[in-house]
Amino acid sequence: MTHDEAETLLGAYALDATSDEERHQVEAHLAGCPRCQAELDAHREVAALMAGGLSDEVPARVWERVAAATAPGRATGRATVPPPALAPLAVPDGQRRLRHLPVARRPRAVAQGLGVVAGLAAAVAALVLGTEVGQLRSQVHRLQQQMGTASIANAAALAATGPHATVTLTAADGARAATVVVVPNGPAYWVSSTLAALPASETYQLWGLVRGKPVSLGLIGPDPSRTGAFRVGAGATKLMVTAEPAGGTPLPTTAVVAVGTVPVGALG
């Protein structure tokens, strides 16, 4: 196809109004013709402006399907593999007692009172730090980026319009400490909290309990009133919060300040 022939087809091509054969010929020409490419790009901007008024409310299930299809660990068409989320860590049996620890309203006081458990956790943490810290850092970085954005509030609101479970995390006295919205397949949103703010040197860290083991889901930051998005892996039965040094830890080093049960089937 000559340049002139291709050029006359650019409008129809931009609107998908050519035959398949013409489309292939135009595409072959475009690859080597910046001028036609630029004209096509301009046509597409015009088309996009015309389509702007067609905007329609998208059913929430569409985003759920997109989120499920793009979830970490899903096979995708990309050549590279996404960085894995923090894998469940092997911990001594004794660590399982963590789930039975009394929850505490004030993390600092309880952290001191449970020094033995914290020490054990810290020892385990030290063992695995070498291999996990790189992954943890990337996850921490990612989650920090997710904190407090308007899109998360929007996503949470969107999630709440479709199938979802609301997990209420409670403190030791049974008072509501935080609310998390969980969507089937794992997207989850930290939407509100009554936990006290921490000093900047500390952060709240969210954990999922998977087969009795705590798995880091991400950092909430020192200000628990901010929203956050994260992903709950399959098999998580409980969500837990601890107060940790800024930057987070691979395993809890302080006592759980709030805990909530993930309803059976909430993760799809």
Partner: peptide, 24 residues
Amino acid sequence: RWHPEALSEVYRRNAGPVYGLAKR
């Protein structure tokens, strides 16, 4: 770079027109 929150923002901005056009 596999930031899911970026995809969610792309969706938030553009899903309405994409869906509306496809439905039309």
